[in-house]
């Protein structure tokens, strides 16, 4: 019965239960978000074992410091995925992951440029999100994709595409703003 009760709780109630050292609450959070956390890490890192380490880190960190999640700043899903992405990027940029960077660089030099992976948007996001993505100009989509999935800084994106840094910065921001608007209209994110 406890298991059923956990399933009826909101994410922020589950985090409060985690703060009370309730393992079943953490299990429910993992059930809801585990695949996405692992999937994002794997997509960015391109290494299953390291992606598993990162996903493990993210959930164990939540167990150790549940107070780091502030519901007033966004959803638990957003919090967990932001942590996952940030840690994945740290791994990519660390000295220890030279192999990953080399693989990424090889990919960036391939014929698929400027798209890191043409199929990424097709296979990794839900249909509604694809609809929203289709509403923004390709030039904005490309820089967002290179930064988010390619793990590049905006400066690296600019160098890679031979563009001014300011242009990349503004394309990322305007692209995200447009996406926020269209996703809001589609009910995917808060309008």
């Amino acid at each position: 019965m406890l298991y059923l009760d956990e399933r009826t709780l909101e994410d922020n109630e589950l985090v409060a239960a985690v703060a009370d050292r309730d393992e079943s609450a953490l299990a429910e959070i993992y059930r809801r978000h585990g695949s996405q956390v692992f999937g994002l890490a794997k997509r960015v890192i391109r290494d299953e074992e390291m992606a598993r380490d990162i996903a493990q880190d993210v959930f164990v960190s939540l167990w150790k410091k549940p107070e780091a999640f502030d519901a007033s700043r966004g959803s638990l899903r957003t919090f967990l995925l932001a942590k996952t992405h940030s840690r994945s990027i740290d791994v990519i940029r660390s000295e220890a992951s030279r192999r990953i960077r080399e693989e990424r660089d090889a990919l960036l030099k391939s014929d698929s440029v400027p798209n890191v992976d043409d199929e990424v948007w097709q296979v990794t996001v839900a249909a509604k999100v694809r609809t929203a993505l289709a509403t923004i100009p390709e030039r904005e989509r490309d820089v967002i994709e290179l930064a988010y999935f390619g793990g590049l800084t905006y400066r690296e994106v600019a160098a890679h595409l031979g563009m001014a840094e300011g242009t990349v910065k503004s394309r990322i921001r305007s692209g995200l703003s447009r996406l926020q608007e269209s996703m809001g209209q589609l009910g995917i994110v808060t309008a």
């Binding site: 953490l26 299990a27 993992y30 585990g34 695949s35 996405q36 956390v37 692992f38 999937g39 994002l40 794997k42 997509r43 299953e48 598993r52 996903a55 493990q56 959930f59 164990v60 966004g74 959803s75 899903r77 957003t78 995925l81 932001a82 992405h85 296979v123 990794t124 996001v125 839900a126 999100v129 929203a132 988010y148 999935f149 995200l176 996406l179 926020q180 996703m183 995917i188 994110v189 808060t190």
Partner: peptide
């Protein structure tokens, strides 16, 4: 922006051992 980015999520099945490790 973070909320938007969190929608770019690959739907990947996590390994069964992951929860055990956590």
């Amino acid at each position: 922006f973070l909320e938007v980015a969190s929608e770019f999520v690959p739907a990947t099945q996590a390994p069964r051992s992951l929860w055990a490790r956590i």
